[in-house]
Simulated assay, not measured.
Amino acid sequence: MITINKLLVLLFSIFSIGLLTYSFFLSYESQVYRLITYYDFALCIYFLYDFLKQLFSEENKWRYFYTVGWLDFISSIPVITEFRVLRFIRVIRVIKIIRSIRTLIKFISQNKKESLFGFIVFLVVVSIVITSTAVLYFEKDVGNITTAEDALWWTFITITTVGYGDYYPVTGFGKLAASFLIATGIGFFGAVISFVTDKVNSIKSNP
């Protein structure tokens, strides 16, 4: 059965494969690699949640685990330098969902609002990862955003439009990325308010 969660799992699985591929070109000691491992860990928590949800919803849990469940479980393991090649098992997860592409398209057409919100969530996460990674890459030698932790904190206060000012980009590209991230945050919070309002109204109209 296709759900908005399955749609997000598909999108994030494809994105995580791209992150993993990029990480192969980075030094293990680099701060950019460290930042990517943080984001990968967050995605793994989401994938693990999806695995556990699927496991407990199955009537025959052992059958699920020994057929495809173990693949979902392995793909939920965070990046470990010695075993990170195993993460390409996520490709199987993607193929498994894409095989039901017709059902997926039907779900999107019948659940436009939920699907749109899912795509918005995906795009916001992608924007966060790409902008923070790019800012760290360009700022680490010239600005005060020099570590993965600095980049994470800067990203959080920027997308929430708080802007403490303790960390800030000094390059032209960094400032452009910050502007884009602020706009993304404003748009996302507006979408969340609209989505929640719509859900509350639907509950009121269907007591």
Score class of each variant (00 low, 15 high):
S127A: 14
Y164G: 15
Q54M: 08
L136C: 09
R84K: 13
F73K: 01
T171D: 12
E58I: 00
I89E: 02
F122Q: 01
S127C: 04
V124A: 05
T81S: 07
L52K: 04
R63G: 03
V192N: 05
L116H: 09
Y46G: 03
S30F: 04
P207K: 15
K140Q: 15
T161Q: 13
I14Y: 01
V79G: 01
C44S: 14
D150H: 15
V91C: 07
G118D: 01
T161C: 13
F83L: 12
G163Y: 10
A151I: 09
A148M: 11
F73C: 04
T155W: 11
V200H: 09
D40G: 06
N60W: 05
E59P: 03
T155I: 09
I45G: 05
L181S: 13
S127E: 10
V192F: 09
T184H: 12
Y22P: 00
S132P: 05
S127G: 06
A134R: 08
V68H: 07
G185N: 12
F88K: 01
I97W: 04
N201C: 08
A191N: 11
F156C: 12
T184E: 11
I193W: 14
L19G: 00
E149Q: 14
G187R: 07
S76W: 00
P78E: 02
V121T: 07
V91N: 03
F73A: 06
G143N: 13
V196F: 08
N201W: 10
L11M: 15
S115E: 02
D40R: 02
F138I: 10
I80F: 08
S76T: 00
T3Y: 08
D50Y: 00
E58Y: 04
S100F: 05
T197H: 10
